[in-house]
Computed example of a mutant assay.
Amino acid sequence: MVSSKQLRLTRDAAQMANAVPQVVLHRVSRMMTAGVVPNRRDQEEFYRMGAEKVAAFGESWTAMSMQAMAAQQQFVGWWMQTWWQVALGGWTNPPTFQHLSNSAQRRWMNSMLDVAARGMAPVHRRAVANAQRLNGKR
């Protein structure tokens, strides 16, 4: 079964797949027509192009690191709680190893989807906004 997180990540990836070629086409065309000495407006756009890539990378890296660290902490907490409940006999009818394994896999998958979504968000936001701005839809 496909989760809402998977659908959201797929939607964002599709939007980026649509926006990025538009932005690249616009900017490369602009570079080609600017020639050897670009005007002030072109220089500002070219500077913005580089600066936003550095900023998006930094934001993505930080967001993914923070989300991965939070996911690891949650997973360790869950695993320790489960381990102690089973080890101390806190469950009258303890789950099977397969049940624990499936639950851990679901948690791990959800955590990784969260990490990917956090990392994609700054890039997605900029790519879609640039496509709208450069195509005059803003």
Results as ranks from 00 to 15, higher is better:
Glu59Leu: 04
Arg126Thr: 12
Trp84Ala: 02
Gln43Phe: 01
Met49Asp: 05
Glu44Cys: 11
Arg133Tyr: 12
Pro94Arg: 03
Met1Arg: 01
Gly50Gln: 09
Phe46Ile: 05
Gln73Met: 07
Met120Phe: 06
Ala68Pro: 15
Arg11Gln: 10
Trp78Asn: 04
Gly136Ala: 10
Gln15Asn: 08
Val123Phe: 03
Leu100Asp: 05
Ala131Met: 06
Trp83Glu: 09
Ala63Asp: 01
Ala127Asp: 04
Ala71Leu: 07
Ala17Glu: 09
Leu7Pro: 14
Arg138Thr: 05
Met69Gly: 00
Leu134Gln: 06
Ser29Ile: 12
Lys5Arg: 07
Ser111Thr: 09
Pro95Trp: 07
Gly77Lys: 03
Gln43Val: 01
Trp84Phe: 09
Leu25Thr: 14
Ala71Trp: 08
Gly119Tyr: 10
Met66Phe: 07
Asp114Leu: 04
Ser3Trp: 08
His124Gly: 06
Gln6Cys: 02
Gln132Asp: 15
Ala56Tyr: 08
Ser4Pro: 05
Val37Cys: 02
Met64Leu: 04
Arg133Ala: 15
Lys53Thr: 07
Val2Cys: 00
Glu44Asn: 14
Arg27Lys: 00
Gln74Ser: 13
Gly35Lys: 02
Thr10His: 05
Asn135Ser: 06
Ala34Cys: 02
Ala131Lys: 04
Ser29Cys: 10
Val128Ile: 02
Val23Gln: 08
Ser60Cys: 01
Met112Asp: 11
Gly90Val: 00
Leu100His: 02
Ala14Met: 06
